[in-house]
Amino acid sequence: MSQDAWLTAEVAGPKKASLITKPEIADAMIRRAKRPIFVVGSIAAEIDLEEKKLIDYVIAMARRCNIQVVATGNTNNEFLKRGFTPEAVMPAVDIGNRLTDPKWQGVDGKGPHDLAIFVGLPYQMAWTILSGLKNFAPNLKTISLDNVYQPNARWSFSNISIKSWIMNLEGILGNRGD
């Protein structure tokens, strides 16, 4: 497992994401978080994970782990089609910006988020937004759940196969139980 950016030239700075080598790591972070939030981009509805789409895993995880969801791009449409209503619909950079504000009380106004989980954004957009959070949101933990290495997250998968990705996502869900 390597810490090479998925797009070869997107080399990170000195501070790079730790690798999620097994689902328990992500699961533990989510368990520990008091106010986690999912930031879900438009590609989540395009990626096939065998018989499901990535967004279906997001919905399952959000429900099981009680994570609030922000839909960016036009992802809201896809959530609604699946009978799931996100807490907020806003541009990815807007939620990114708010997450750098320690006074922001979150999408529900009940307090700052302590964990942001990114998934399904265009690679370089996630890269840059996560860079903004790495540098300007020191109290926020970030995870990328895409199957490509996002060096600016606090934790990220390495560049893994679809099969391995599914196992990891299932693992996070499985570890939760119902």
């Binding site: 000195p14 990114g96 840059t128």
Partner: peptide, 9 residues
């Protein structure tokens, strides 16, 4: 400004 550093250096 919301900064999105493209390079940390």
């Amino acid at each position: 400004p919301f900064y999105l550093p493209f390079c940390d250096l």
